[in-house]
Nucleic acid binder design. Structure first.
Lengths: 163, 163
DNA sequence: CAAATAGTTTAGCCTTGGCTAACAATCATT
DNA sequence: AATGATTGTTAGCCAAGGCTAAACTATTTG
C-alpha cells in the first residue's frame, strides 16, 4: 500500500450489503488460497532480484551489487548473501568481486517477471491510476496475479489503447 | 499465482514494444517501491489472521485455534504462537484454552481488511475473472493495493453492476 | 606505484513464521 | 466421575531475510 496515499481507507459501511454476505469458503479451498500466497512469498523476492538484475544489465550494461543494494534499499551484505542463494538456485553466475550474469534460466525468469510486471503496471494506468501509485502497487501485486487474470488485464489494455 | 492455471504465461515477446522501453525509475523512487512491499509483508500475515478471526466470529460465533489452523493450512503450534503475537500487538484478547476475541483495534483492522478484500474480489469478478481464480488472486493482492486504486476498483464495480 | 576510496564478502547477530514432539487442559460419553 | 478424544500450549528446531562490523579486493588518483 502506498504510504503517501491520501484517499480514505475503505470501510465496511462503504460496501454494498450484498458484498458482505459471502459465506466462508469450504475449508480445503480456503487452505489452498493461503497456501498459494505463502508459496508466492517464497519466490517473489527471488523474482524481484532476478528481474532487477535483468533490468540493470539491459539498461546499464552490467549488474553490480552496490546498484542492487541501493535500488532495493537494502545493505550490501544482504545483497551478497542473496546472490549466493541465486547462484545455488542456478539463476545467476558470479565470480567473486566481479559483476553478475544471468543464466539462461535466470534470463527466462527475468523476462517473465518483467512481462508480468509491465502488464500489471500498464493495466493500472489504463484503469486510471496515477503513475506513481501504479508503480508501487504493481511492484506488490505482480507476484499474486494469475495468468488468467494477466490475460484479462492484457485484453483490457489492448481495448483501452486501441482507441 | 494460481497453480491450476492453464493459461500460458506471458512472454516478453507477447508485449507491445512500447511497453518495454521504460527506463529504470530514479533510485530513490525505486527504493521506496521495494520498501513499500517489504512493509506490506510485515503486516499482511497479521491482517490475514485478524481478518480470518473476524470472519470466524461473524460466521461461526467464535474463533477457535483449531479452525484457524485448518483454514490457514498451518499447524496449531504456529497459530498458538501467532495468537501470542496478536495479543502483544493489542489486536486480540485471549485466555488460555478459551476462544478468541478481537479488541476494538482488532475489529477495526478486520473490517478494513475484509472491505479491501471484498473490493478486490468483486473487482476481479467484474473484470471477468473466474470466481475460483479471483478468490486466490484477491487473497494475494489485497495487501498491495493502495487506497487510490481501491477507490478506482470500487467505481469500476459500481459501473459494471449498475447495468 | 602507493595510498585512498569504493566495492564486495564474511561473520555473527536478530526476528519471523514455519515445523514436530511432548505435555496440559477441556469436553463428551458412558 | 473417569477416561479417551479433541484442543491448546510449550519447547526447541530450522530457514529466510534483514542488520552491523570487520576484512578483503579492485579501482582511481595523486
Amino acid at each position: 500500500m502506498s504510504d503517501n496515499d491520501k484517499a480514505l481507507p475503505p470501510t465496511a459501511k462503504s460496501l454494498k450489503k450484498s458484498y458482505c454476505n459471502d459465506a466462508l469458503p469450504p475449508i480445503e479451498e480456503h487452505t489452498r488460497q493461503y497456501e498459494t500466497v505463502r508459496n508466492a512469498h517464497e519466490t517473489e523476492l527471488i523474482e524481484d532480484y532476478v528481474e532487477l538484475i535483468g533490468d540493470l544489465i539491459s539498461h546499464r550494461g552490467e549488474a553490480r551489487a552496490a546498484d542492487i543494494a541501493s535500488r532495493m534499499g537494502v545493505s550490501q551484505a544482504t545483497v551478497s548473501k542473496m546472490i549466493r542463494r541465486l547462484n545455488e538456485l542456478g539463476l545467476v553466475t558470479s565470480k567473486p568481486y566481479r559483476s553478475l550474469f544471468l543464466t539462461a534460466e535466470g534470463q527466462k525468469m527475468a523476462e517473465t517477471s518483467r512481462a508480468r510486471h509491465d502488464i500489471v503496471l500498464h493495466f493500472l494506468r489504463a484503469l486510471g491510476v496515477n503513475d506513481h501509485t501504479a508503480r508501487i502497487d504493481a511492484e506488490g501485486m505482480e507476484h499474486h496475479v494469475s495468468n488468467e487474470t494477466l490475460a484479462i488485464m492484457q485484453r483490457f489494455i489492448d481495448e483501452q489503447t486501441k482507441r
